[in-house]
Amino acid sequence: MNLTLHVWRQKNAHDKGRMEVYQARDISEHMSFLEMLDVVNEQLVEQGIDPIHFDHDCREGICGTCSLVINGAPHGHQKATTTCQLHMRHFSDGDHIYIEPFRAKAFPVIKDLVVDRSAFDRIMQAGGFVSVNTGGIPDANAIPIPKYFAEKAMDAAACIGCGACVAACKNASAMLFVGAKVSQFAHLPQGQVERERRVRAMVAQMDAEGFGNCTNQYECEAVCPKEISVEVIAKMNREYLRAATKKS
């Protein structure tokens, strides 16, 4: 199939940026979206045009590196799918495809479609951990964890930190991302000790990074490639409220 691509090009963080139009010819339906961009890039290089820069790595939907807003939707319109797992069979010959970076104040553009998501790392550094050092740990089976809670924790822990939730939100809120980590630990006995301190620190850092707040539109849940539920936001709010009533 042949496609017309409208791609955001921006030389660096200081450049204003603009949409450019490229033709993608003879695209196979079995290609992934990023393989289609590889083919286009090969052609651009042949023509002496700087290839389109986009973040990607594992190409199997787990590392969270790939991004892109495709036709207005972070990771495109296929449900529960990262951009790297999106295949061209979901497009038709003659389509126009609009490709933009994840946009948020806290995710400044580095180049073209590549954005800086290090704000997520700083939130994790503020409290996304259990404070145990290596070694001297009791046996792994010493504390039984009900399967239900272990599964709940795993549901939340599946977050890949891609940032689609932020890109989809009109407030650029990171509450699905932060809520996922807070929920994971809130469901596990290992997370109880630092429960209040953790949620306070992570929320404070989230605010400091310039992310907005949740106003219950659930766009984040709709685009999340790992289908993290907005329940985690409710859980985080509950944890935050609980922490506000306690000293620690």
């Binding site: 259990v130 145990v132 740990i137 009791p138 039984p144 964890i145 272990a150 924790a153 822990a157 290992q190």
Partner: peptide
């Protein structure tokens, strides 16, 4: 010891109904 360490960090390994 690796498994002990990971459980202490909050890694949500699969569990049986008895919690182990």
């Amino acid at each position: 010891a690796i498994i002990d360490q990971c459980v202490a960090q909050g890694v949500p390994f699969a569990r049986e109904y008895g919690g182990l």
